[in-house]
């Protein structure tokens, strides 16, 4: 399965209001694209349209050349995994149970989980570093741990495409960095199991090398640091796209957020840094 996800001229209206208006984008395998934009720009709606939860009023979404509306929900969930902004984890499921839910699109209605499913769950938990939490109840976890469990659940889906909705919004700086590192590894395929010696035998599905990742990210500096490209979404339209430094320098950014910004270079990482200019006169 090829990992390219493409959207063509998407239009989505919710409750009579146009949320997305002519959005086109594409993310290739091995590419980490950041989706930035102010609150209410339509980022979550866009991600939900790309994973098939919402059907667009116009336009198409294609994954690996196949149109989403021709695929069943199960088939879509084998191609696109989503890490939601928040989820209802108020039930006493264990971490392993929740991660195993990522195998839902592979288990038949009367079937059991297979050894392949178990391996995928273990790999996913190892990747997002929740193995030692496996038997804990999800209700006992901290916000950062929950987020990593949801990331593991998405990895367990072994999809070529991964969508993330503000994956680090509730995390402290350490977990934020770790999460981006883990996602980055999934994009470049560094930590990929296909290079490991305990690779599953033939006939089993392989973990796709180099996922296509699209992540809605609030933190502009982090987006600039970890993403290959940025998309600026505002008022339901893509206002700027391309290299992070260019997008952050674009006038569209200040217009989208409604506040003047200044771009500088982070002295430690060398990546672009955006500073909102609150009070022009006094500075």
């Amino acid at each position: 399965m090829s990992g390219r996800i493409e959207a063509e001229d998407l239009r989505v209206a919710l409750g009579g209001e146009t949320v997305l208006d002519g959005v086109s984008l594409s993310v290739a395998a091995g590419e980490f694209v950041g989706l930035v934009g102010p609150n209410g720009a339509g980022k979550t709606t866009l991600l939900r349209t790309l994973n098939g939860t919402l059907s667009p009023d116009a336009g198409t979404v294609q994954v690996g050349g196949e149109s989403l509306d021709t695929l069943s929900s199960r088939a879509v969930a084998r191609r696109v995994a989503t890490v939601p902004q928040e989820t209802n984890l108020a039930f006493e499921f264990s971490v392993a149970d929740v991660v195993e839910m990522g195998r839902t699109p592979y288990v038949s209605r009367f079937g059991r989980t297979t050894p392949e499913d178990h391996r995928a769950v273990e790999r996913a938990m190892a990747r997002s570093e929740v193995t030692e939490l496996a038997d804990r109840s999800v209700t006992s976890l901290s916000g950062g741990e929950r987020q990593r469990v949801l990331l593991a659940r998405a990895f367990a889906q072994t999809t070529p495409v991964l969508l993330l909705d503000e994956p680090t919004a509730s995390l402290d700086i350490n977990h934020r960095v770790r999460t981006f590192e883990v996602v980055r590894e999934a994009v470049t395929g560094d930590a990929d199991d296909s290079q490991r010696s305990d690779r599953p035998a033939d006939g089993e599905q392989e973990e796709p090398t180099g996922k296509a990742v699209l992540a809605a990210i609030h933190d502009l500096d982090a987006a600039a640091r970890y993403c290959d490209r940025l998309l600026l979404l505002a008022d339901g339209q893509i206002r700027a796209a391309g290299d992070p430094a260019d997008v952050l320098a674009d006038d569209a950014l200040a217009a989208a957020f409604g506040i003047p910004t200044r771009l500088s270079e982070d002295p430690t990482t060398g990546s672009p840094r955006v500073t909102a200019v609150v009070d022009e006169e006094s500075s």
């Binding site: 939900r48 994973n51 098939g52 939860t53 069943s72 929900s73 199960r74 088939a75 879509v76 969930a77 084998r78 696109v80 995994a81 989503t82 939601p84 989820t87 209802n88 984890l89 039930f91 499921f93 149970d97 929740v98 839910m101 990522g102 839902t104 699109p105 288990v107 209605r109 009367f110 659940r153 889906q157």
Partner: peptide, 24 residues
């Protein structure tokens, strides 16, 4: 009982369930 797994996933909410391949 054949829908037990779907019910589990539905506990996480319908948006999540749909993203996990359940035809909600």
């Amino acid at each position: 009982s054949a829908y037990a797994r779907d019910l589990n996933v539905l506990l996480l909410g319908e948006v999540d369930a749909s993203a996990l391949g359940v035809d909600v």
